[in-house]
Design a protein around this nucleic acid. Structure first.
Lengths: 180, 180
DNA sequence: TGCGTAGCGGAACGACGCTCCGTATTGTTG
DNA sequence: CAACAATACGGAGCGTCGTTCCGCTACGCA
């Protein structure tokens, strides 16, 4: 029982990293040597499977927030570095962009996880950078989290699209007061 | 023949605007009172159908570029207003974000149309704003076009996500020199 | 040894984009 | 005006998804 759950998890992270995050559920089941029924009893939805696979990395990313806030030269630098970390995570999982697609695609569980774990962290970083006077723009943490996600998530290793550069562009915008 | 093509086009724009851009092709065929075969002979791909439906609006958007450059107070303002126009277009077509998803989803024709028509326009606007000294950041027109697209395209009328604000954030970033 | 139940596999379902082929509808000839 | 191409058409069918469902296996306890 738990034996199967673990082998499914192992298979899933193996399959997701080789065939991409969009790999068919069947492929994961096959790789785990398990039937569809078994897989779906443990993970009722594709999204639940992804949550299980990525939870650890998301936690790691979340934990890095307060840490960076302490160790960095300024709140803004911390914010910047955290966003880079977050962007890196999403970039390596091509196709994880669906997370922000709202109701669609049955990724609600993963969506929720992002909101629960990452939103508070970003909120804290943003607030700190705002009180230190380094951020003047008028944005909510949610908007920023989603914006960076959108910017990054569909990156398909396009040599003409430098993700880091674009993300930094957005961050640079934070320094300036809102335009009408 | 051409009679059918027109009714398919009409049906498509009707269906896309009511059921969303992701509406099944079958639905368009039914709405047009036409079989799948007929639809696919005129528009061999979902993407071709969308190209046909949106070409006019895309052309309009493209034509607005040089126009804005003349009439606006400064190149940067023109750039800003054009980007707003572009963003508005994408926003009203929920789900058109797939366009930037690269190879996927068989949207290549639409992708190409964006590149052909909009990229040169944005390039001109960006170049003008750069020579006027209002843009210091190091971005290619392609990156900017895609970034704005990504930012906007999955908007699902989320009251917590103000598209215009986010786009302006990115534009504000353009003013500043690149950070390392 | 028998039986109840929990855990399992994989066929099957509905939705999708797209293809294919038999049929209707033209329009051109003798 | 009739016979016959050539063209246009409709919709069933295919392969791929995510997900569901059901018959079967294998184990625990009497």
């Amino acid at each position: 029982m738990a034996r199967n759950e673990q082998s499914i998890l192992d298979a899933a992270s193996r399959v997701f990293s080789t065939s991409g995050v969009d790999a068919p559920v069947r492929e994961v089941a096959d790789a785990a040597g398990v039937g569809m029924g078994t897989l779906y009893r443990h993970f009722p939805t594709r999204s639940d499977l992804m949550v299980a696979v990525y939870r650890h990395q998301i936690d790691e990313c979340a934990d890095a927030g307060p840490q960076l806030l302490e160790s960095s030269a300024s709140p803004f630098v911390a914010l910047q570095e955290w966003v880079h970390k977050y962007a890196d995570f999403l970039t390596t999982k091509h196709g994880l962009g669906n997370v922000w697609q709202g109701d669609a695609a049955g990724l609600s569980a993963l969506h929720q996880l992002f909101l629960d774990r990452l939103l508070p962290v970003l909120a804290e970083l943003l607030e700190a950078a705002r009180t230190s006077g380094e951020v003047a723009a008028d944005v909510t943490p949610y908007e920023l989290l989603r914006a960076v996600g959108d910017l990054v998530a569909w990156n398909v290793n396009d040599p003409n699209y430098d993700v880091l550069r674009i993300v930094n562009l957005l961050l640079a915008g934070l320094r300036q007061p809102p335009t009408t």
